[in-house]
Design a protein around this nucleic acid. Structure first.
Lengths: 195, 195, 195, 195
DNA sequence: CATGAATGAGCCTTCATTCAT
DNA sequence: GATGAATGAAGGCTCATTCAT
């Protein structure tokens, strides 16, 4: 089995799913984009669902790896959180199609695509929770915030920001500014301090 | 035009879309749930897309109204932000189906449903931005956070939390706790202060 | 539901199945022959299998009825057996398409079409066994032949003869002669000798 | 040409065709069962149809040979007929897969597989007609039965009996009893009476 | 000769939408 | 306005056959 061909199909599927959405995307279109025949798709994937799930599971691996790497190089928990934010938004720019899949299709999938649990995505989210915990243990962060809730707040904020950026055609929004602001709000809050 | 019948169809559509997703939902099923004939649906709506858009636009009106009302009763910007959070999560519980539509389908719609701009949704988001601005003018909140970015952070966090709650079958997660934590993080940040 | 339309589809299916065989037949072709749209077929039948099964089950009813009627008018068991033979071969001529379906597809169906038991066909076969039993009780026929085996011998002979007739394009074979010969062979075998 | 490989494919095809039916059987499955690559099948056979036809034509040779041999050892036409019946039913038991092919697929083939005439099968049938003729010439059998019709009656009866046996999962039916009964019915019918 | 990955035509089935009643 | 049977375009998937290695 030509593993190169499998990769080409996955890459094509990311593009087509991002452009048309999972339900509007046609397997024939994915195959054409990948430069293979329709039937070839079914040599590497069970069905259309399986293509999407494979994308989520397999493409998340290097993304998770990259983020873990970036975090590990930072000394303080504060810097790690900033790195998570930067890393996520950078990934969204560099892998724009994959980013849109995460934003637009991942949610649907875990509910409507039979049997998909989204394990890799959970792993990605968990990095955010773990980083909070690290900071709590080191005394950098307050202890009354639950990692399980915080990871959702952080991911939710990042996801909304990047979705908004993806959907705006011009993309004139400055993601660096957004990164700074997310960091500012979550780390320090919006209230004025020390009056 | 029998406005009662139109309302019945909308209500049925919210339920079916939430349960099956927009693409899996069948117009016939919606009609059956509404107690009307399939064709009747097309007397009140142009097509399937139009049903979904109508839901977003029309159902958002009382939701926005309710939130504006709740906010107006609070004196400080801090209390208004807390009210927004509480109000949103309460709405997600009370109108669970509508909530799921917002979480799962709204994103798809603005990209894949031709010509939909999501004006009511923007209005909803804007409440969050405006409330930040109010606090900034009154001196409660710091001035270096852009309302346009903040509204996305707040909505993103709320949306992620409520989606997670919706998808968890047991729903044993305490939304009150989540509300407090979102408020704590966004208002005060996660870093320890006044060392 | 327009029962007339259902009948038209069944009639068309008999023709197309007989001409092309079940597996080669296309649902679209059946619909066209019936003068309806492809989708209409699925308003009346679950799937392609269901069309074939419905043919067997429903078309057998008048055939069984006709045979039972014809038999009842005959006084002796010998005459009843002759009537069965005549009736079967006449039916094969008059309902040639249906006849071919019985010959060519019925066997496949009970094995390869999921869940089909062929109850009506068993009923048809049973008439043959019952008629032997009647003759055995009346003393016309010898008692050492099992009805269960005899019905298969009789149907097998009839089926082979009529299939051969169906498949011969010219159809110059005389079915009356065949009827006489089947009767001659089988009857002189089952009747008591040397009274 | 590796004749051994060709034989392995034929043997595998008999098994798969008998199990799944001609139309449901996959060439790939046959190849796998034969322990060869899919493409190898096409080195020995023109196409799927050709495999089935080759089975009928080639596998019938030893079957015909066996039956001719068995018959030749019997002195009277009566015994020869009994031998035909016994031999056929024994073959159905010993070569159950091949038997099912004859019962279920042969009929389809002669109509739907382009250009197939079934010459070997006709030869098999002819043995039955010839044996009747032998008995007629020797004065054992009556003269008013046409061999062409008789061979169909005999084969039809045998085929129906053996098909019924094949399809019954338990196979508790006694084929010896069936053989006796077929012989009893047909012989006492075709033999001259009251000499 | 043998392989088995690749091909792509073909078909069953679905379902948004229409329209005669 | 209301109905729901009818429509038919569209697409996921299969599998007999081919061909580069």
């Amino acid at each position: 089995m030509d593993s190169h061909k499998r990769a080409k199909i996955l890459k094509a599927a990311i593009k087509i799913f991002a452009r048309d959405g999972f339900f509007n995307a046609k397997v024939e279109e994915i195959a054409k984009e990948a430069g293979v025949a329709t039937g070839t798709t079914y040599l590497y994937f069970d069905n259309k669902d399986d293509i999407l799930i494979s994308i989520f599971e397999e493409e998340m691996i290097p993304i998770i790896e990259t983020m873990r790497n970036a975090i590990s190089k930072k000394a303080t928990a504060r810097e790690k959180i900033i790195e998570i934010i930067t890393c996520h938004l950078k990934m969204m720019q560099e892998k724009a199609d994959m980013g849109q899949l995460l934003e637009l299709e991942l949610r649907q999938s875990s509910k409507f695509i039979h049997g998909y649990q989204g394990t890799r995505f959970k792993e990605y989210l968990d990095i955010m929770g773990e980083t909070l915990a690290v900071g709590q243990e080191s005394g950098e962060f307050r202890n009354d915030i639950h990692p399980v809730i915080f990871k959702q707040i952080l991911f939710g904020a990042l996801d909304q920001i990047s979705m908004n950026w993806s959907l705006s055609k011009s993309r004139k929004i400055d993601l660096h500014l957004s990164a700074d602001q997310i960091a500012a709000v979550l780390l320090d809050g919006i209230e004025k301090k020390g009056k």
